[in-house]
C-alpha cells in the first residue's frame, strides 16, 4: 500500500479534495474517488477515447479541450478545470449535444458516448457549423464499436442546427413468387 497524497481537483465547477496514492490517474480519481462514473475506461492506456474529459487552465475561459483521463495523473491535473459528462447538462436540461445523441439513435450501448459527446461539444464550441470532414476528424480519437459513426454525425449536425433527425421511411416489398421446388433425399455423411 502506498502512502496517500492530498489531491485537489476542480471538476464541473466544484473543488474536491481527495486522498489517493500518488500514481492515481485522473480517470481513477473521477470514477472511484468522486463517483463520477460517466467517464469510461475502455483500453487502459489512451487508445480508445472513452475517458475523454474537457480541460482548461483554471484561469482560462470556455469549456476547454478534450484530453484522456486514463493517461493523465490526477496530481498533474490539479491546475486544470475539468468538465466531465456529468458537467455538460444544466438544471435546464441536457446539453443540445446530449439531447441530439439521444434523439438520433447515436447511443447504442452508450459506453463510448460520454467521451464522444465531449469531443463533439469541444468541436461545436470552436466551430458552430462543422462540415462532415471536420466532424469525422474531431471524432477520430473516439472509437465506437456499435454505430458505424453514422448516427453520431447526424446527431452532431442536428445539434448544430444543420439538419433534422433522419426520417427516411421503410420500403415495403411486394409478395415474391415462390420459385420451383426441388426436393432431394438428404445424405447424412456423418452423424
Amino acid at each position: 500500500m502506498s502512502d496517500s497524497v492530498l489531491i485537489r481537483l476542480f471538476v464541473n465547477g466544484e473543488e474536491h479534495a481527495l486522498a489517493a496514492p500518488p500514481q492515481r490517474t485522473l480517470l481513477e480519481a473521477l470514477r472511484y474517488d468522486l463517483q463520477l462514473t460517466g467517464s469510461k475506461q475502455g483500453c487502459d492506456k489512451g487508445d480508445c477515447g472513452a475517458c475523454t474529459v474537457l480541460v482548461r487552465e483554471r484561469s482560462a475561459t470556455g469549456r476547454g479541450e478534450p484530453i484522456l483521463a486514463c493517461i493523465t495523473l490526477a496530481q498533474d491535473a490539479q491546475d486544470l478545470a475539468i468538465i466531465t459528462i456529468e458537467g455538460l447538462a444544466t438544471p435546464a436540461g441536457l446539453d443540445p449535444i446530449q439531447q441530439a445523441f439521444a434523439d438520433c439513435g447515436a447511443l447504442q450501448c452508450g459506453f463510448c458516448q460520454p467521451g464522444m459527446m465531449l469531443s463533439a461539444r469541444a468541436l461545436l464550441d470552436r466551430c458552430e457549423r462543422p462540415s462532415l470532414p471536420q466532424i469525422q476528424d474531431a471524432l477520430s480519437g473516439n472509437l465506437c464499436r456499435c454505430t458505424g459513426y453514422t448516427k453520431i454525425y447526424e446527431a452532431i449536425q442536428v445539434a448544430a442546427g444543420l439538419r433534422e433527425p433522419s426520417s427516411r421511411a421503410p420500403v415495403s416489398s411486394e409478395k415474391a413468387l415462390p420459385s420451383d421446388q426441388v426436393a432431394y433425399a438428404v445424405k447424412e455423411l456423418l452423424p
Binding site: 496514492p21 500518488p22 500514481q23 475506461q41 495523473l73 496530481q75 498533474d76
Partner: peptide, 12 residues
C-alpha cells in the same frame, strides 16, 4: 484496469 506502479510525482 491496468494500474500505474507506485511512484512519486514532482511538480517543478
Amino acid at each position: 484496469m491496468l494500474t500505474l506502479p507506485r511512484l512519486q510525482l514532482h511538480r517543478p
